[in-house]
Structure formats: C-alpha cells, structure tokens
Write a protein that binds this DNA or RNA. Sequence first.
DNA 1: CTCTGTGAAAACATTCACAGCG
DNA 2: CGCTGTGAATGTTTTCACAGAG
Lengths: 240, 240
Amino acid sequence: MRNPYYGPVPEKKPIPRPAARRLSLYLRELSSRLEQGEATVSSKALGRSLGLTDAQVRKDLAICGQLGHPGRGYTISDLVGSLRKIMGRDRDWRVCVVGSGNIGRALVSYDRFRREGFEIVAVFDANPAVAGQEVGGLRVQPMRDLSTTVAAERINLGIVAVPREAAQQVADALVAAGVRGILNFAPRRIEVREGIGIVSVDFTVALEQLAFQTATGLDLSFEDGDHADEPTDGDAPTSV
Amino acid sequence: MRNPYYGPVPEKKPIPRPAARRLSLYLRELSSRLEQGEATVSSKALGRSLGLTDAQVRKDLAICGQLGHPGRGYTISDLVGSLRKIMGRDRDWRVCVVGSGNIGRALVSYDRFRREGFEIVAVFDANPAVAGQEVGGLRVQPMRDLSTTVAAERINLGIVAVPREAAQQVADALVAAGVRGILNFAPRRIEVREGIGIVSVDFTVALEQLAFQTATGLDLSFEDGDHADEPTDGDAPTSV
DNA sequence: CTCTGTGAAAACATTCACAGCG
DNA sequence: CGCTGTGAATGTTTTCACAGAG
C-alpha cells in the first residue's frame, strides 16, 4: 500500500518466517500483561518473559511500525492492536471441527478459542452412530452436511481431527466446501492447493522433540513444536 | 562445559536446530513407508512427500552418517534405525499426564503414543473430587502422590495439561519429582532449569498461525507449529 | 544414467553497537 | 539517563553444483 502509480513497485516486504512464529507469542504475552493492568513494556522486559534478546524483540516489533517511545518503551494496547491487525485477528474466524473423537471433543470444548475470537460453530463426524450426539453444546452433524453448513455458517477455517487415513480426504472436502485454512491434527502431511492455509500439530512429533532434547542431554534447544505444511505448489520448499 | 583439558577434543558436531525439527518428520514418513513394504527411497522421493528439496533431505540425512547408496537411494530400515537412535527413541519413555480435563483425557487416550513407544503410566489431578475416577484405563491420582509415583513408575517425561495459572507450579513439581522433560499444553512459557527438556504446544497459537497465513493471503508459509521453550539459563535466547 | 555426499555460494536471521529521541 | 530503531557485522541454514560411486 505504498507508491500507487508507477515507481519502484508497491513492495510490501515479507515478514521473516521465524519472526512470524514469534508474533503469536508476543501477542499472548502482551494480552496477558494488558489484563494485569500494565500499560507499557520495554523490549528488555518483554524479551525476558519470552526468552529473547531485547534487540530481537525490537526488530520483531518494528514489523508493526514505529510504535516504541524512546526512553519509555512500548504502549501495550497499541502493540496489541497492531499485532491483531497484522495477524488477521481483527476479523471474524468461524471454525468447524471434523472428527468427534477424543481430540475433536477436547477442541470443541476448549474455551480459550472462543475467548480469543475463534468461534467453533459446527462439528462433523463420519460415523453415523455419532451424528446427533451433543459435544460442547453442538450437535454432531454427518459429513454429508459439510458443504451446506460451511456455507450457511460462513465457516472459514476447518480443524481436522480424524485418523491419519481419512485426513487428506477430509481436508479436500473442507477446501471444496470453502474453508480458507486447515488446522491438522492427524499425523501426516496434508496437501492443499495454493492459497489455502495449513498448519499441523502432531502430538507424537512434539513428544519426540522432547525425547530428543532430553536424550541429547542439555545442549540444543529449539523453537516451535507444531508445524505448518507448505501449500503444495509445484516444488514448494519448506517443511511438513 | 567446553573443552576441559586442552587438545583437539572429540567434538560431536551439533545438529542444526531446524534440521532437528525435521528429523521427526523423516522418521514419521519413513516408518510409514516401511509399513507399506517399501525398502528403499531416494532423497528426491522423500523430499516430495515432505515438501523439501532433495538437497535438503540429503544434508539432513547426512546427520545419520553415510547411509545412502549412490544410484540406489537409502535403505529405509537403516535410516529408521539410525534416526530412532539419534532421537532417543531407542530408549524407554515413561510418561505421566497432569490434569484430567478435556485435553488431559484426550492425551491419555491417544493410542498412538503407546504405539510409538511413549507409555503413559499415570494421571494426576489437583481436584480431589476427580481423584479415583478412571481415565483411559488409569486411575486418576491426587497431586500429593506425584513424587512417589514418578519414582516408583520410573517416569521420565511429564505432560502439563492444566490451566495457565497452575502450569509453572505443576512443572516445578514434576521436575522436583524427577522427570527429565516436560510437554506443556498450557498457554504460557514454562521455565525449567538447565538440563530439563521443554516443548510447548499451544492450540491458540496454532490457530493464530493459521489465521495469519490465511489472512496474509497465499504467500508466506512457515514450519512447525508447537514450540519448545528455552531451558531458562541466564540470558537464554531462542523462543517461548 | 541415477543418486549420494559435500564443499562453496547465496540467502536468511540474529546480534551488536550506536545515533538520536524524550 | 533509559530505551527505541536500525545499519553493519556475524552467525546460521539452505541451495547450488558437481565429483564420484554403483
């Protein structure tokens, strides 16, 4: 959104991938501080809470524009507002869960989603015996209703909580129904077409990372645990 | 802790952090192929499944030693064996879950853990009303039994599935009881002393990453979803 | 010809260090 | 002073490209 007509090109600079991952953590910490009644915070203090250096924090927050006040720090509410906007947290996210097994049910009942602005409005399950049961205040719907409900409820994100074997198929159905992004809990890589978001969480991978850290002794340590697959275009790089 | 005496030192080179994250994904994909009855695989084919370039795959697998056969590819079973060893998957992991809410119960019942060699042998809950109930074949124990049971059952990993407010305290209790690593599902950073492993999974952060990807349109995509906090030593860098 | 292993180059990310604001 | 914003330096990861094995 700069330099309309001709000239050196609009050029919205891309957010560094590792920074993008950290943005969520800033938002989480800042919201928490805001609730505690704090009004400002310095890059040093924030870094301490998050295990980052102050320089790193300043570089990351520079993504939000120049919100810091030299000598004073950052105004938390401004930062929260800016982060929410950048991360797409200012819009409405309407979510459905596919799979009403242990994980699906736990997610539907996970109150924090709603409090954070992600509203789960439908649950589906392929098992006809389960359809009609109630989970977290919602009636489980049969898969056949998927596309109708996604449209009617204006659902834009889908959560896949089905067995490995069914995961890709379910993801395809969700995309076909119109969701724009998928959060996958099945232990496999999901391929989606360009333009559809995909993030995966694999509990076993997380435990394995932990075993690795623990076995390796004390040294190496790393970051994020859940992974975001690549939008499967041609020769997409990135991870599963 | 570096180079005690003088001399060239054995020098086991450290595994690049991003590579460490990918190792789990290789193992997952390779195990699956092994089950399908495949015996060998090329870096190119593996990369295709995982969304990585063939060069990346070769560099990563070089960590396991020289297991590839030029012109032929890698023998999957060798790779799986080597990966399991490197990742500490060759030993026994005995796990307890603290918190028998929705998430805790889902995890206790998550069969894949056992099949992958992580045995959940105890569940704890601070609520006395819950103690004694059965969850996934285990009797929920009161917190007061934590250290006794951890010792008696030789538990080495703990899963924290309690509300945010109690998380740090529970983590401290687990470490005091003797676990060597913690998998944290509470939405906050957990601090542990040097030498204790820590990996966090935050569902809201994962959904947020998805919202970000989706809102940002089609472009940037990233990796892992769950995060591993840093072992809180002095000025530890890394993320939450 | 296919496919690995690997230095060397390129891209990317973090840390440093300091000018400048309040 | 304390603290931000940012180029320049450093460190890390990925990609390239090719020699050499089967």
